[in-house]
Design a protein around this nucleic acid. Sequence first.
DNA 1: CACCCTTTTGAATCTGTCT
DNA 2: GAGACAGATTCAAAAGGGT
Lengths: 374, 374
Amino acid sequence: MQSKIINKDALKALPELPDESIDLIFADPPYWMRVNGVLERVEGTSYDGCEDSWDNQFSTLEEYESFTRQWLRECKRVLKKDGSIWVIGSMQCIYTIGGIMQQLGYWFINDVIWHKANPTPNFRGTRLNNSHETLIWAAKSDKSRYTFNYKTAKELNFDSVTFEEHKKGVRKQMGTVWKIGICQGKERLKEESGQKLHSTQKPEELLYRIITVSSMPGDVVLDPFGGTMTTAAMAKKSGRRYIMIEKDESYCRYGQERIDNITPHIGEIEKGVFDVPPPKVKFADMIKAGYFHEGETFYLKSNGETAVLKSNGKLLYQGEEIDMHACAARAKNSRAKRLNGFNYWCVKRNGNYVSIDEIRNEYREKECASQKDD
Amino acid sequence: MQSKIINKDALKALPELPDESIDLIFADPPYWMRVNGVLERVEGTSYDGCEDSWDNQFSTLEEYESFTRQWLRECKRVLKKDGSIWVIGSMQCIYTIGGIMQQLGYWFINDVIWHKANPTPNFRGTRLNNSHETLIWAAKSDKSRYTFNYKTAKELNFDSVTFEEHKKGVRKQMGTVWKIGICQGKERLKEESGQKLHSTQKPEELLYRIITVSSMPGDVVLDPFGGTMTTAAMAKKSGRRYIMIEKDESYCRYGQERIDNITPHIGEIEKGVFDVPPPKVKFADMIKAGYFHEGETFYLKSNGETAVLKSNGKLLYQGEEIDMHACAARAKNSRAKRLNGFNYWCVKRNGNYVSIDEIRNEYREKECASQKDD
DNA sequence: CACCCTTTTGAATCTGTCT
DNA sequence: GAGACAGATTCAAAAGGGT
């Protein structure tokens, strides 16, 4: 499918998309803020938060629920079976949305908190300063094998790893609370008048994370409420395709210009190389190819226990023939039934202990070159 | 109403409580996690999260929705018209709960993120490390004048203010993302065997914040799913009354002992003194009492503009008799129609400029002593 | 008592592929 | 679809023990 902007209402455009054609959806639906009139700052300047007719088009909760159910049902239809969807919302709408998603059979992977580094203060002091928005990340069903670039996410995680630690090679699991600043400055699209074009433009960093963590290059990303086209901009930048739906003609115009100015940069993060699994290797094949010899001794790194290799790839340990992984667990006296043997066993080469994982890497480089290029 | 523990099922006990009798509810319902089998750590130990049969009592989403609707409807009934409710949940349940709350007419004040300082990691790398839970804070209706101790919250806010800054007097609005560690160590209740008593005991700090920020001393706090009685413990500690519902007899027993060991500490935070408004003062009364004199000159702090006091409390400025607050705005050339005149006007006393706000404070101390003790 | 090292543990929708 | 089996996967805090 070709990347494109569709200048139509979401409920008109979605039904025209084919079944199971989309890898990833990002949706930033109308929030239904229920604010009327103008909120005034104490100093007298009015606060231009979100007074779009966009957000106030619903007069009852039932209407909003019905609208939500319609677009979410269409999104489920167009999603590939292993595809996933992100929906962003605030307190006013995300619970209604999430409840309906579960009723429709979406399978939640995570909910993610966008913790705003620089939230708008609460001028009235009538409640807690609203400093986050919520994203729901869901698969099409509980059977989905959704894309999650676990190690890429670790590379991108600066929420629980400082820059200094990251430089030194520290990597930790990415969590569900993301601290990201709101969209402002040069990133924020302005009209000729200097007025901001869109009242809730999302930060590029947010979309960049979402796209690189939950899709692969070439994937098709759909955004049914395109707005300023942040999703398309980040999709193009990271080598994904995009389908953007947006009913406002002027958003489409400004957005197209924005996209045209993007130069793709497809590096390691964008390719997801950290998550491309190395070719699988059968232990028996490595023995056949002469990388290990029947009868040679295997040494356990940590405690010096030894075992003897059999021709079928199993190990002889204390008189028993055991699978290498189970044997590692046994010899290490672990409570686990199995450990990854490649992480524990060594052999002797030229008088030095060498990890069998290193030997597997050699084997991969020499024997699996063709597979790697697939 | 007397503080008490009711050893019954929530759906049995709630209907027996009188209408509009509760100031604050904290509810920690079953999350219905839908966990299957045993999750093992690499070392072979099994992760003991929540295998509670209580959590697994539902077989369909409809059943869970029905249960949720029932207890939430009862909670709304027993809540006073200006009362509010907190509900905690995770991704598996909070959207269902929130959606139903809106259908029942609850009015959302905030949703709050409990950002766990030390979350359970994801052992398998299958998704983002789940590092938060969500709380919904809602009023009984959009007409409610719920309790929110705004300044007390500022005192308690260490999420966006460091301890050093706080010591220097820096106070910032409390936000909706709260970083609090999970309950572990000595705080965690254990059985005689040393086993944890309850699989999901909540940290005291979380309940302490909730209670001090959204209730006042003497208020009645209800917890329909009492568990280890953390809510009661923090309610007693901060001088609130409590009604705890818990069907498990052993939780009630251990919980009662826990509560008995609590000594109330009712200091400034617990009393909410930062939020108790000072007695209202009529400007005309201060003139009558001789704190200001007809015809004396009022000076604007910032730019030296002057006005003259009339006996009715208004100011003569550029030939016009204007209300003191509007006059401050006019004299300061502000875009606002009114400013708080007490923050801007000065008079001369013994040759020095003195803020009229200071004089109001003197007046309060001397003339409103009796009111203050109310 | 301070410091260091080891062990334990926490509301979790926690594997993929081939036979 | 069930079962076998190969192989990949964790972080912070508190307690406890040793020096």
